[in-house]
Design a protein around this nucleic acid. Structure first.
Length: 189
DNA sequence: TATGAGATCAACT
DNA sequence: GTTGATCTCATAC
């Protein structure tokens, strides 16, 4: 049986429920992508979240309906892809940090200019470059093209740890990954 | 293997 | 003017 599409109701739950449930799900963007192996949860009460200090032009999508993509520029260079969660207006999101490349490898290699599958999508910036995601996709619905999200068919073993690359609330264990995957941006310990 | 600089921009102080 | 949900490349060990 084919995997079910992830619908709006899937995302209309707490980020802490959605984030681990995304591990093992399939993310395709314009047909390219693979299995999600690493995500981080950002709750609006969390000092590390962009929405913590209220709505701005950049984070406006986070304050909208769940099931939409929030894309922002990181360090002036990279793009990062988030899925908006929880009931509308709660301004929480899941950062997609790494996927295991499965589909559209040729296109992803070309965009990333590397042949090493391990370096294609292991990190939020790399992932967006490989899939061709940028700010023009900010605010798009996740249940319509070019996005395609498929539920996992088996229950994966999920690793939990501290989030990466942040200074505020760094101790919160809100990073989730597929245990033992080679495609994590960093191993869990 | 590990550390450090540079790239480059929007939000915030 | 400083900082950040990052990555790459160079240099050092």
């Amino acid at each position: 049986m084919l995997s079910a599409k992830l619908n709006r109701a899937f995302f209309a739950r707490s980020v802490h429920a959605v984030a681990p449930d995304l591990i093992g799900a399939t993310l395709l963007f314009d047909g390219a992508g693979g299995r999600i192996v690493e995500v981080e949860a950002y709750h609006h009460t969390d000092p590390a979240a962009h929405s913590f200090r209220g709505r701005t032009e950049r984070n406006a999508v986070m304050f909208g309906a769940p099931g939409y993509a929030y894309v922002y520029r990181s360090y002036g260079i990279h793009w990062c892809l988030n899925f908006v969660c929880e009931p509308e207006g709660s301004a929480s999101a899941v950062l997609i940090r790494a996927i295991e490349p499965i589909a559209g490898l040729g296109r992803m290699r070309r965009r990333r200019a590397t042949a090493d599958a391990r370096l294609l999508c292991s990190g939020p910036g790399r992932l967006c470059q490989a899939l061709g995601v940028s700010v023009i996709h900010n605010g798009l619905a996740l249940d319509r093209k070019p996005f395609e999200l498929l539920a996992r068919s088996e229950e994966p073993q999920i690793a939990v740890g501290m989030r990466i690359g942040i200074t505020k609330a760094a101790e919160l264990p809100w990073r989730y990954g597929l245990a033992g995957s080679r495609f994590l941006s960093k191993p869990f310990r």
